[in-house]
């Protein structure tokens, strides 16, 4: 059994994603995976999918799909996008079944930058290094969606329609927590203070590799020739001209710019849902606090996902 979908329209940066390909940074390969991992996990759980199932990440460019054959359950999560099924508005966080002849449209709404479309079944997409997540700069992995393209879902399942609860940690957050460093020593006291007091906004330079910020110039104190070293999802790296960038899912794996701080993982999904022009502030926490927050966040997410798994079935 298969269900077939036809892409009617897809904006740029609409890609196949799954849980990503961790552990290959030493070969220049970032983890990739969804920009909003919590929303993606919620969509898969609401459909009864395995946690790492492949789905589609929808950019602000939006996505319109027709179901041409069969029937398949879908879940839409992520930002507050406008979701319509055959022209009828559905909630932004919703699951239901697409049947042959149905048209699903996901377009930018009141908030958020990324929506997730999860599919109850096995989305056919090419794996690369064991994952179907698309590495956007190269296009390797499941790849970008384009108008006219067909999608096949193997072993599709239907699901009962239901609204999904948008969990608190998935809402966009205008203040994110960081640990300082690993190169805060390259910034003088004024630059470190300016980093923590802002004000910052997201600039229009915004993609799966990183978010460039607009705000105070915080140039490194010394002219540097820093040897290249590993960077992380969440690194706040500062170029020689003092412009800060937060590295995201498809980041380069090494860089020669100093990192003034690193955004903790628990706050990165909510950060990804901000939009260009949105305000942003950084709050420093100690590494010990960051570990405590991570453990509390993991417990909250696990409880929430377990609740979703029990929903309506």
């Amino acid at each position: 059994m298969t269900a077939r979908l036809q892409v009617v329209a897809a904006g740029p940066h609409v890609t196949v994603q799954d849980a990503g390909r961790p552990g290959l940074m030493r070969f220049g390969v970032p983890g990739s995976g969804p920009m909003d991992r919590l929303a993606f996990a919620a969509g898969n759980r609401a459909l009864g999918n395995p946690a790492g199932a492949a789905g589609i990440e929808v950019s602000p460019g939006g996505l319109v799909l027709d179901c041409t054959t069969g029937a398949v359950g879908v879940a839409v999560t992520g930002g507050g996008f406008l979701v319509t099924l055959n022209g009828v508005t559905r909630p932004g966080w919703w699951r239901g079944t697409l049947r042959s002849g149905d048209r699903l449209a996901i377009r930018p709404g009141s908030w958020g930058s990324w929506a997730c479309l999860c599919l109850a079944g096995d989305l056919e997409a090419s794996p690369w290094l064991g994952s179907r997540a698309t590495h956007a700069p190269s296009g390797l992995g499941g790849g970008r969606l384009a108008a006219g393209q067909g999608l096949t879902v193997h072993a599709p399942r239907e699901v009962a329609a239901a609204d999904l609860i948008l969990p608190l940690p998935a809402r966009p957050r205008h203040a994110v927590r960081v640990t300082m460093g690993p190169q805060e020593r390259f910034f003088d006291a004024a630059a470190r203070s300016a980093f923590l007091s802002g004000p910052w906004r997201l600039s229009p330079a915004f993609d799966r590799m990183g978010l460039r910020l607009a705000g105070p110039a915080i140039p490194p104190a010394a002219t540097l020739d820093m040897p290249s070293e590993a960077v992380s999802r969440g690194s706040v790296q500062v170029a020689g001209d003092g412009v800060a960038t937060v590295l995201m899912a498809d980041h380069q794996t090494t860089g020669g710019y100093p990192k003034i701080a690193t955004v903790i993982d628990a706050d990165l999904d909510a950060l990804a849902q901000l939009r260009p022009g949105d305000r942003l502030a950084f709050r420093a926490v100690t590494p010990d606090m960051a570990v405590t927050i991570a453990r509390r966040h993991a417990a909250t997410v696990a409880r929430y996902l377990d609740g979703l798994g029990r929903y309506g079935d």
Binding site: P182, S232, G234, T262, A266, A294
Partner: peptide, 12 residues
């Protein structure tokens, strides 16, 4: 040893 968020140490 330089802490990197909750998940890493940069060993210089």
């Amino acid at each position: 040893f330089r802490p990197v968020a909750e998940h890493g140490l940069l060993v210089d």
